[in-house]
Design a protein around this nucleic acid. Structure first.
Lengths: 155, 155
DNA sequence: TTCCATCTTGACGTTAACGTAACCCTGAAT
DNA sequence: ATTCAGGGTTACGTTAACGTCAAGATGGAA
């Protein structure tokens, strides 16, 4: 059986993570420069722990929903500093709640967008059904996995 | 009673739209350059119709959920070309469905992010409740509207 | 040993999405 | 008559988020 990725002692090279998450070494080093990642070293080489991998997941997810690296870093720092004194924690709590509200607004936007696209799709489907039913995707037919990347790498 | 914004004959100056949507004239002209907007003219001056205004809404919403202007333009063009022949329509239909799937994935990401932030908030709240209950926002207290912009203008 | 793949650190190039400055026009107000 | 607020068009500057070399260390395979 394959190595459990979640084994805390599991370590990754930069390339392994890049393959897994479809990004480039340059990007990971860039995130490190900007303070979003801090992998260990073996000599010069970077060694990513399971925690680093999880953090990378958060970074990429943040990017997909439109956060800038600066915003992502701020959130990650809030996670890190669950020490730092009660006053700091109170501030962190406020920031978390603000973020939650912002995210909920974004989800609103997404839901609206989806609704509009669905409407447009239906209009088109009805129109095609009358004019060229043969062009409609058959009933039992599945959409092939889109070749176009869902989340374009270039922002 | 105020002018109904939805009156089809209602027209807007560039500044009116900018005030309403909190963006700059430069941005609107830029979107026009890029083919996302095409307001009418009175002499040199741009005159935005109600349709233009609606389209601007779509553009800004797209931006908030992380789309590039190029992607937004592509979507807008799909809307425009609900003519263009049956084959074109079939292609448009496919693109719409792809977009819907992509949006649904993004919503997944957002839901995950919200869930994590909620967890972190609860942890912090519990911690604070033990250590410094006075720092917690009181029960009847409302969060003030965040001064920080939910959607930073600079991408 | 030599080669090769894979890592490293600079450093410069690139693209998107505007900001900003310079200059011109125009109609209304002082 | 002039001032000025609002609009316009270049055109260059800026920032984020990397891409793309260049040049070097390293450790295993031929």
């Amino acid at each position: 059986m394959a190595l459990d990725l979640r084994r805390p002692e599991r370590a990754f090279t930069i390339r392994q993570l890049c393959l897994e998450f479809k990004c480039t070494p340059r990007a990971l080093r860039f995130y490190e420069d900007k303070g979003l990642l801090a992998p260990a070293r073996q000599g010069l080489n970077r060694v990513y722990s399971y925690k680093d991998r999880a953090q990378l997941q958060l970074i990429l997810r943040g990017k997909r929903v439109g956060l800038s690296l600066a915003e992502i870093r701020e959130i990650l720092q809030l996670y890190d500093k669950e020490d730092g004194g009660a006053a700091q924690n109170a501030k962190a709590l406020r920031r978390f709640k603000e973020r939650i509200i912002a995210f909920e607004q974004r989800r609103e936007d997404i839901d609206l967008a989806i609704a509009e696209l669905r409407e447009a799709s239906e209009r088109l489907e009805n129109l095609l059904a009358k004019v060229r039913p043969d062009l409609l995707p058959g009933d039992g037919e599945f959409l092939p996995p889109p070749h176009t990347v869902a989340y374009p790498r270039h922002v």
